[in-house]
Design a protein around this nucleic acid. Structure first.
Length: 901
RNA sequence: GGGCGCGUAGCUCAGCGGGAGAGCACUACAUUGACAUUGUAGGGGUCGACAGUUCAAUCCUGUCCGUGCCCA
């Protein structure tokens, strides 16, 4: 006997272990089975499961289980990435907490060993948590981006791209994170709006020269009054960088400054002279229209400096402290940039050169991991020529080889790829793939897959054995992630897995990493394998809190998926995700919703329990297409419909449609009606009907378990195992493929008619304040022979569910009966007491109003000549039929009301 | 400034050219018989506003208002 309800805490672990031990997560070896493969978006090795992961992995697992049930050879390829910055940060912090020597104190090799130790002990929590969610990944194939095989792939790709000129080294301005002391890519920089200042300085002209600067204008904008100036006014949000100015720029069309272009100004504090140059960059409308140019610490200035061959002075070290140099006044050396800012402003002020300070909202770039202000720095870094790689990646989506679901994300994808910048891939970290480049004593670079190959190249170059040192830097983590769909399958080796499962079938991810990851996989996949890595990209929404806000630790509004699983079970959480995940929409998570879908699971549990109590067991050789009872043919018909809905929904990534269809069918069709309607049959004495009904109930229950399994795997597996002796676990059962032989419109009409009649009887009683339990005789007038047959056939059901004592055909209904119009017949409920005639008249009048309102609407349409002439014939016929039915109903209801007087 | 999205029942959201839907919440009634993690019945919407296309618009187009996200 089944327990009273499902206990997820007890059952889930056991079920999961059984699945895994049975090898169900591994691809089928059957060579005829179609392959189906998804690679997991690799979580950070430092990560732990949050709601975003829960959504992402639930959707993947639903697809994986669905395709597995359909008989495909399924691989869900799991793994993690090494998360360079995040992991290094975690371990460094831990070293500090433990009072251990710092990273720099212990040196590179020792530190990297520490990180590996940490990874073995504490990394990968998320993998265990994914199991709790029910993720049916093939864990025997788990991969890590720093595994030997994947690292080989990385080196091979680097060497290939380097030899083809797609990877190169260059000295450029990069986003420098002074906290982690590494370069980062554009994507890892966030623009934050903060309250800042705009400082206006005077830079005096050389040799005390002067010019006339307009200070008043007429309505036409012509200057009417001038003043004599011996300085140029500039404004800046970053005063400390003035020490490295190479020029002051004005717009060539700016007449105010035309006279002094080419002259020099004294750079205060630095005591250098710098030129006033003309360049298109300054906006005459902004500030004074004159801009200081610090080529080594600002991206815009960098371009101006390059165009005009201005010197670029590096002002800071890796930690953004002012660094000693020819141009750096000694007093600032060693100061942090923000401290230096204060001093520069004070010193300028002391010289009488500070004009004013404005408050201003400024865009400040910050590192996405560190949160500190990014410093543009002039350094040597390695770059990928992303522009070249982007072209095939754009084409593949343009021509539909890869499609996004929903489609509108393609625009985002194109937009970014079409404006793509060189990708800075080197990082000044220790945790990651070390760049496979070695340098000779003179700085000559030798790129090779390993040191000995580099050595061979170097020896040939120098003509003798020469000492080499390897590049200190590692690669951006995303460089290895970009190879994930094929490196995890064994590439560059030609493995059977690669042949079978690549390209993968679909990539499931959030829109936040379309640039970071999806686009880069497309680029690398096409470049290295000549194929797109996946034909479908499913972009799902974010998980928000119940107020529609992004969940974040700092806001304290996170809901922990594991606590939801502890409380309500993984199935409830998964169902919530599935039914909320309409294509492209965000998911608002609230505990009460999860609770509600836990209740849905319990409803199914109890339905199964009821089946069990009534001895409903699968019957060998059962054929759903050969049944006697209309009720049974009806539920099979409904089952076939919902099976089609679920299959179609999952095929089209419409998880909400699939979940909604199941919810409706299980609760409101199977439980509310079928199980109720079968009760009188089971209590009756028609043994054949009983046996058939039992076998049908068992069949429908089993099919429902299969259909629901992708979304609610644990509970369905538990019910599957406990409700009958089975040859296989549910996870490897066969997905139903019902054909039209199971459709039966006639039986659907008949049972739906019965349901309508029962509902109407209940309704009338409720409206007339007659206790629902009161058993009343039912009369019927004007019944067609079909109705008479149906009444005869379903008398037992009617009596049970409609609380009817008897059913009798009469010529005319007495006025004392409560009357119900259904199709051609009028039914009457005979009450014991005297009914309140005025209340009954109100009830009927209300119905008549409703009918008339509908009739008016339809007549309006049919009276419109254009409608009749232009609308499709089927639409017109349908409207005409509707009108006829309504008019019939109206006439009947009116005559009842008339007779009541 | 550019791009993407959203505004449908009290709340959360599906639907998206021909009958306004679901879940939750609410109201009334019921109930120890698969299920109170329940049942039955019910109330509740000019589908953001305006204009256009169409025989027909919640759905398509445009404008506006409100709101969210991404990029610069």
């Amino acid at each position: 006997m089944l327990d009273k309800s499902f206990n997820p805490a007890e059952a889930e672990t056991e079920i999961y272990e059984k699945w895994e031990a049975s090898g169900a997560f591994e691809p089928k070896s059957d060579p005829d089975a179609d392959p189906y493969c998804i690679v997991i978006p690799p979580p950070n090795v430092t990560g732990s499961l949050h709601m975003g992961h829960a959504l992402n992995n639930t959707l993947q697992d639903i697809l994986i289980r669905f395709q597995r049930l359909r008989g495909k050879s399924v691989l869900w390829q799991p793994g993690m990435d090494h998360a360079g910055i995040a992991t290094q940060m975690v371990v460094e912090r831990k070293l500090a907490e433990d009072g251990s020597p710092s990273r720099r104190d212990m040196g590179r090799e020792a530190f990297v060993n520490k990180v590996w130790q940490w990874k073995e002990q504490s990394g990968g929590t998320i993998i265990k948590q994914l199991r709790r969610l029910g993720a049916s990944c093939d864990w025997s194939r788990e991969r890590f981006t720093l595994d030997d095989g994947l690292s080989d792939a990385v080196r091979k790709v680097f060497v290939k791209m380097h030899s083809e000129g797609l990877i190169y080294r260059a000295k450029r301005l990069v986003n420098w994170d002074p906290h982690f002391q590494t370069a980062i890519s554009d994507l890892e920089v966030e623009q934050k709006e903060v309250q800042g200042h705009f400082w206006h300085f005077k830079y005096p002209l050389e040799n005390g020269e002067t010019y006339e600067f307009p200070i008043e204008h007429d309505e036409g904008g012509k200057p009417t009054k001038w003043e004599t100036r011996n300085y140029i006014s500039i404004a800046t949000t970053r005063p400390e960088t003035m020490l490295g100015d190479g020029a002051v720029a004005v717009h060539p069309d700016d007449e105010r400054y035309a006279a002094i272009i080419g002259k020099k100004v004294l750079l205060p504090l630095a005591d250098r002279y710098i030129p006033i140059i003309a360049d298109e960059y300054p906006d005459p409308e902004l500030g004074s229209g004159a801009v200081k140019i610090t080529g080594a610490h600002d991206f815009n200035d960098y371009e101006v400096a390059k165009r005009n061959n201005l010197p670029m002075y590096v002002l800071m070290d890796e930690q953004a402290r002012m660094v000693a140099s020819d141009i750096m006044p000694a007093k600032y050396v060693g100061m942090d940039r923000f401290e230096a800012r204060k001093h520069v402003v004070a010193d300028i002020d002391a010289l009488g050169l500070l004009i004013k300070v404005e408050d201003r909202v400024i865009q400040q770039p910050v590192g996405d991991r560190s949160g500190v202000v990014i410093e543009p720095m002039l350094t040597d870094q390695w770059y990928v020529d992303a522009k070249t790689l982007a072209k095939p990646a754009i084409r593949a989506v343009r021509d539909g080889t890869t499609k996004f679901y929903p489609e509108n994300w393609e625009k985002t994808y194109f937009n970014w790829l079409e404006n793509i910048q060189p990708w800075c891939i080197s990082r000044q970290l220790w945790w990651g793939h070390r760049i496979p480049v070695w340098y000779g004593p003179d700085g000559e670079a030798f790129c090779a897959e390993n040191q000995s190959q580099a050595q061979v190249k170097a020896n040939a170059h120098y003509g003798k054995e020469t000492d080499l040192r390897q590049d200190e830097d590692v690669l951006d983590t995303w460089f290895s992630s970009a190879l994930w769909p094929f490196s995890t399958l064994g590439w560059p080796q030609e493995t059977p897995e690669l042949a079978k499962f690549y390209p993968t079938n679909v990539l499931v991810t959030g829109h936040d990493i379309i640039f970071f990851w999806v686009a880069r996989m497309m680029m690398q996949g096409l470049y290295l394998t000549d194929q797109v890595p996946f034909p479908d990209v499913l972009i799902h929404g974010l998980v928000l809190d119940e107020n529609g806000k992004k969940m974040s630790k700092s806001k304290g509004n996170t809901i922990d998926p594991l606590s939801m699983i502890d409380k309500f079970g993984a199935d409830a959480l998964r169902f919530t995700m599935a039914i909320s995940a309409a294509q492209g929409t965000n998911v608002r998570m609230s505990e009460s919703r999860v609770e509600g879908y836990r209740n849905f699971g319990t409803k199914l549990w109890n339905a199964a329990r009821f089946c069990e109590m009534n001895d409903c067991k699968p019957v060998n050789g059962f054929n759903p297409a050969e049944l006697e009872q209309p009720l049974n043919r009806w539920i099979i018909h409904e089952l076939a419909l919902v099976a089609a809905t679920v299959t179609d929904g999952l095929d089209k990534y419409r998880f909400n449609d699939a979940a909604q269809g199941l919810y409706r069918f299980i609760w409101h069709v199977f439980c509310d009606w079928y199980l109720e309607l079968m009760k009188p049959i089971l209590q009756g004495d028609d043994e054949l009907a009983k046996a058939e009904t039992r076998s049908v109930a068992a069949f429908v229950r089993d099919q429902v378990l299969i259909l629901l399994h992708p979304i609610m795997p644990f509970q369905t597996e538990a019910l599957w195992g406990q409700s009958a002796k089975r040859n296989t676990q549910l996870i490897t059962a066969n997905w139903p493929e019902f054909g039209s032989e199971l459709h039966s419109e006639q039986d659907a009409d008949e049972i739906n008619w019965l349901i309508k009649l029962i509902t109407a009887i209940r309704s009338v009683k409720s409206e007339m304040n007659i206790p629902a339990g009161a058993k009343l005789p039912l009369l019927v007038a004007g019944a067609s022979s079909q109705t008479k047959e149906r009444l005869e056939r379903h008398q037992a059901l009617l009596k049970w569910l409609g609380r009817v004592i008897s059913v009798e055909n009469v010529a005319e209904l007495p006025n004392s009966a409560l009357q119900i119009v259904l199709d051609e017949s009028v039914f009457g409920l005979v009450t014991e007491g005297v009914i309140d005639m005025s209340e009954e008249r109100d009830r009927l009048a209300k119905q008549i109003d409703k009918i008339m309102a509908e009739i008016t609407k339809i007549k309006q349409k049919l009276d419109n000549e254009n409608f009749v002439a232009r609308a499709p014939e089927t639409v017109v016929t349908k409207e005409q039929e509707k009108l006829n039915n309504l008019e019939q109903k109206l006439a009947k209801t009116r005559s009842i009301l008339n007779r009541l007087g």
